[in-house]
Computed example of a mutant assay.
Amino acid sequence: MAQHHHGSTSGRPLDTLAYLLLLAGPALLLVRRQWPVQVCAGTAAVAGAYLLLRYPYGPIVVSVVVGYVTAVMAGRRRAAWISLGTLYVAHVIVNSVTHALSWPVELGLLAWLLLVAAGAELARTRGEQRRQWRLAREEREARIADEQRLAIARELHDVLAHSISLINVQAGVALELIDDDPEQARTALRTIKDTSKDALGEVRQVLGSLRTGAPAAATNVSAAPSGTPAGPAAPRSPAPDLGRLDELVRQAAAAGLTVTVRREGAQRTPPPGVGLAAFRIVQEGLTNVLRHSSARTAEVTLDQSAADRLLLTLEDPGPVSAAGGARAGGSGAGLVGMRERAAALGGFVEAGPTASGGFRVHAELPLHAQDMTRDEGRR
């Protein structure tokens, strides 16, 4: 390459200064990430000096291209354009003054510079798109993680609040009857054992979903025998749905609450997501009656008269018990969870006191709703 430059008749032969200028450009590129604008201007200035001294064209332009592209990719486009434009204008002026101007050569150089600028802009645009896609993916993954975390929190709240409320009631019964009626106390203790066993199975399933990445509501781990360690291979059963409504009624009866279930319309099996939401709403509603109401009866109505939605109503005659309200330890998360479950399916929940002093929960769940928790888990 050196011999070629020396043999060229179109410019000044390469000398020590030329080699220094040829080395200065690559040396500046070593710090292009830290100072993109300064390096872009510096490589243009080095190239301008090289051409001003009429050394032959050569690799000096490579440093200019790299410095320019780096500045554009760093978002300093205006500074990069000014540096490149100044270099070209200075080159034209010097050639005009020295009477070495050749418009075909200058137009060719301009076309080459425009091609470099277009390539840099294309690279910048693609880089921006990749960054935007990455940010969008991270935001989507964070949103899905938040939704799954909330779903797991709802599941844990519903399972634990219901089970612990039953255990609390039965423990009180056992303490009252342990001396006068040991058999009845034994029945209460057996109910506590069964309830805690079922609760442990459901909690194991929810916590297992954290390890496997599966949606918390997708499956329900069957309760393992006492003393059996939990593990990823624990047996699984379908998620709770309205088919287990009688189980809730029996549990409530064991706690001293008589629940009447009325069914209206043609009874159909709702989609899994709707069935789970309906089960949890009834479960939370009965838990609230046990914790906050002095009523010993409650009524659940399942209305499937409409083909496109399930209407669910749970009502107790009240009034609020002496230990109810804030003293019962409620945080309001149960009602929030009900509304979140219904909203995720495109439905709604209304809850509030009745004129007679009781409490009423009414939910409307579309039967065509998708199980959004499960869909998010597939993504």
Rank of each mutant, 00 (worst) to 15 (best):
D146A: 15
I93Q: 09
R327Y: 02
V72N: 07
G108M: 10
P229C: 04
L14Q: 06
A2F: 12
L84Y: 04
P317S: 11
A27E: 12
A355S: 14
R33G: 02
F348D: 15
T301M: 10
A123E: 13
S237A: 14
A71Y: 06
A214Q: 14
A326E: 15
A44I: 04
N220K: 04
E155I: 01
T313P: 01
V31S: 14
L175I: 02
L200D: 10
Q3T: 10
P56Q: 11
H4V: 13
R33C: 02
G48C: 11
S96Y: 07
A306I: 01
I152S: 14
Q170C: 11
L17D: 14
E340Q: 15
R236S: 14
H162L: 07
G42P: 11
I178L: 12
I281S: 02
G119P: 07
P36H: 07
P319W: 06
A307R: 12
V72W: 11
A333S: 12
Q251R: 02
M1L: 10
L17H: 12
V203G: 03
Y55A: 06
L84I: 05
A253D: 13
A351P: 05
A322L: 11
A185K: 07
V62F: 13
G256R: 08
D179E: 15
P271K: 02
R33S: 10
H162M: 09
H4Q: 12
V72P: 13
G357M: 11
Q283M: 07
E155P: 00
S237M: 09
D371V: 03
S8I: 01
S96E: 12
V249D: 00
P235R: 08
V289P: 00
L109H: 09
S63T: 09
D308I: 03
V72S: 07
R124Y: 13
V65Q: 14
S226Y: 13
R244W: 10
A188W: 13
R130N: 09
Q267C: 00
S165N: 12
G85L: 12
R190G: 07
L20E: 15
A214G: 04
